[in-house]
Amino acid sequence: MVTIVPDFSALLAQFFGLGRGIDLLIVFSIIGAYYLLFRLYLKIEKIQQDITSLITHLAIEEEVNEDISKK
């Protein structure tokens, strides 16, 4: 849209109460970056939970197998 209608970014910026198209781009970039950070946080937390599930499973399996082998 910006290449077809060069003034589009300026019009959009004015719609949001900002001065220039570049200001709008910076604001959206910051919002987008924070959103991506939040998604990354969720992903890391999911990976942490998966690691814990794996470690729990291994811990119990090792303990139960050791207990069985000694009986």
């Binding site: 690691i51 814990t52 729990t56 291994l58 119990i60 090792e62 303990e63």
Partner: peptide
Amino acid sequence: VCKHFLNRGVGA
């Protein structure tokens, strides 16, 4: 005796 080979926290 169970062993976590990595520290996961008291909840885990």
